[in-house]
Structure formats: structure tokens, C-alpha cells
Design a protein around this nucleic acid. Structure first.
Lengths: 202, 202
DNA sequence: TAAAAGTTTGCAGTCCCTGCAAGATTGCTT
DNA sequence: AAGCAATCTTGCAGGGACTGCAAACTTTTA
């Protein structure tokens, strides 16, 4: 058999399937019954693997609900660096997040479910979109590189955390009325408000 | 004995002592060894109470490290409402956080220790300063009231989460060089940057 | 077809956290 | 001072998250 690097191969395909099965089972069950009324064992059961296997895929129950693909980080960092150089770092981040928004709207149903689960379990919220330490560090590094600044300078961190907070609030607003607005619109408004220095709405 | 409502009484005093003992023991031990090398049992041991008692004071190991006094919420909300009416909500929040800054600087050593622990355990960071759901809700409600807006309007939430992110980054910057700057200064700079719409530093 | 590499699973064990009920402390009343 | 009520502490039993290890098992490669 010719080894085929471009095609994933059966093994990788199965891993993806299992991961997805665990993730969606977790979302469905937690949406139905609530976080603490669902055990890892039940999730694994629903995905037809052992409980031990669950922890081979996700380090914790929470992670299965957040669905943070490690590839996302790199893509995001690349977008930040690739943004038109005349834009401010904040605007570059705004632009990069546009792609995140697209991703979310492409998987509308899954993401609405996920966001409903997060809204019902606020401890998950901070870990959404650059909530975990590694992702945040990657973004901060990208912003610092873009600005030609020392990563220990405060500005990249500030811009990153603020932009993250903006996107998170937009997501939380969207899940409340997903049919009367688009996520894109809400995100644009929120970013515009911050870019204007957060004046009171007239 | 005359009952003395203004004085706390022995019982309350003891509770405060125990709470403080647990909190500082937790901070000290975790700073020394790291989060997952310290058990609740060891913390309780160091504070000379049973492990079960630990959970009468804190719902989780994390909370003992964060030291979120429930009184803080109400005070903060009051400050937001009491700020001069000509200020924007964002500036009102900035002002209210000035008092938080004062509190932190008043307990400098404890807070530096706490912030060092948080820096070493980033999962704690989002829960610092309005990180938990209740506190955030209280602040959002105060901001909405100040603006005369429906609390479900997006602006109060946006302002609150952004301001929280700003304060958090200022705290994290401060802990890195606590001797070359003041927290007050860092906070002022960060808030000013956001109020200016986050332009790139020249 | 056989070895190599990677995956799943069970098992044992640690720790977090909770409810419950018994025992100790404290505050208040008489 | 004594007794009663409220509150706090503690031990115990138990569920559930998570980890390391070693034995199957499956896919890939030679």
C-alpha cells in the first residue's frame, strides 16, 4: 500500500469520529439534564467507548463541551499577522475574529447548542475563545510580533484580553436572540463600541 | 452581658480567623508547591481544622485562593451608582475600580502572593475580579440601572466584561514588576488606552 | 506475514466535594 | 448559674473526576 499523507487514513478518521461523537454526546446530554446530572461514564456510553477512552480525548468534562480545536490557534495567529499593515492591532484582531464568526455561523446549530450550554454553566464562559492559557499566549505573541513589541509589553495582552471579552459578550448576546440578529452584526457593533472608547449609548 | 450588635462577638471573630487561616494557608502552600501538589487536607491541617470544615468555608479549593468577599459586590455596585452622573458608565466603572485598587494596595503582600499564585495557575485568572457569575451579574445590573437601560441590553454587559478584562490585565502586569510601578498607574494607563479606542502605541 | 506503532480498555488508586447526623460551642434568657 | 436554642465542627460514607499502568487489540509498515 502506498502511504498516503494527504488522505487522513482510517486511523485518523476514526479518531475524528470518536472525538466528535464524544463532544456531541456531551453537549446533547448536558443541554438536556445540566452539567452535574451527567457523568463522564454516561457520555462515553452514549459515544460507545469506555470512560477511560473519554480521558484519552479530553482532559476534563468541560473540554468536551468547549470544542477547542488546537488547529484554530495557529490559523488565528496567522490571520493576525497577515492583516493589512495599516490596521491597528485591535483592528487586526477584529478582522481575525471575523473568521471565527464565520466558523461559528457555518456550524450554527452545534454552536447554538454549545452556547446555550455555556450560558447555563457560566463557569465555562471564560474559557471560550482564547479562554485557555495556551491560546491566549499564542494570540498575544502574534499581536506582539505584529507590533514589533516585546511580548512582555502590556499592550498586546491588553488588546487580546479585551478583544476576547468583546467576542465573548457578542456570542452570549447572540445566543439569546439568534433569529433577530446575526452574530456578525452583534460582533461588529460590540467592536465598534470599544473602538469608539465605550461611550454611553445615546 | 450586654449584647453588642456593633461588635462582632466571639463567634464571628473566630469565623473570620478560621477563614483567614484557611485562605493564607492555601496561598502559602500553593505558592510553595503548586496547585496540584497541595491537598485540601493539607491546607486544613495547616489551619488546624478538619478537612470537612474547609468546605464549610469555601466551596472549592480555588475559592480559598481567590478570596472573594461577598461584601465586595454590594460596595462595588453602590460605588457605580454613586459616581458623578456626568461620567459615562465606563468611567464610573473605572472610578469604582479605583477603590478595588486601593484595597489591593492596602493588602499589598497578600495580594502579591495571590497574584503570583494566579499567574502560575492561569485557570484561576478569569475568576479574578468579577470573574464569578454572581459578581458579574451584580455589576451588570448596577451599570444597567445607572444607564436606565434594560439589563438585557448588550451595553452594560459589554462595558462590565471589558472593564473586568482591563483590571485583570493591569493586575497581571503589576505582579511582574511590583516595584517599578504602582497598580494605580498601570490601571490608569490600561483604562486610558481602552477609552481612547485601543490605538497602537506610537 | 510479522514486527512496530498507536489505541482502547479495565483496574487500582487519589483527591475533590457533598449530605447527613452526632457532638461541641456560643449566645440568649430567665 | 443553668438551660435552651442556634450555630459550628467533625467524622463517615459515598459519588464522581481524573491518572498511571499494563494488558489486549487494531492499524500501519516492513
Amino acid at each position: 500500500m502506498t502511504p498516503d499523507q494527504s488522505q487522513p487514513g482510517r486511523r485518523d478518521r476514526k479518531k475524528r469520529q470518536t472525538r466528535a461523537a464524544l463532544s456531541t454526546a456531551a453537549l446533547r446530554l448536558v443541554a438536556e439534564r445540566g452539567m452535574d446530572q451527567v457523568t463522564v461514564e454516561e457520555i462515553s456510553e452514549a459515544a460507545d467507548v469506555s470512560a477511560r477512552t473519554f480521558f484519552n480525548y479530553f482532559p476534563s468534562k468541560d473540554e468536551a463541551l468547549l470544542g477547542d480545536q488546537p488547529t484554530d490557534r495557529e490559523v488565528l495567529a496567522a490571520r493576525i499577522l497577515a492583516a493589512p499593515p495599516e490596521l491597528s492591532a485591535f483592528d487586526a484582531l477584529r478582522l481575525a475574529f471575523d473568521d471565527v464568526v464565520e466558523t461559528v455561523e457555518a456550524d450554527r446549530e452545534v454552536w447554538l447548542l454549545r452556547l446555550r450550554v455555556i450560558a447555563a454553566n457560566p463557569s465555562l464562559l471564560p474559557r471560550l475563545v482564547s479562554g485557555n492559557a495556551e491560546t491566549e499566549q499564542v494570540i498575544v505573541a502574534a499581536v506582539a510580533a505584529r507590533l514589533g513589541l516585546d511580548p512582555c509589553h502590556g499592550h498586546p495582552t491588553l488588546v487580546t484580553t479585551v478583544a476576547g471579552a468583546v467576542l465573548r459578550t457578542a456570542l452570549m448576546q447572540w445566543v439569546e436572540r439568534p433569529d433577530t440578529t446575526t452574530l456578525r452584526e452583534l460582533t461588529a457593533e460590540a467592536f465598534a463600541a470599544v473602538a469608539a472608547g465605550l461611550p454611553d449609548p445615546r
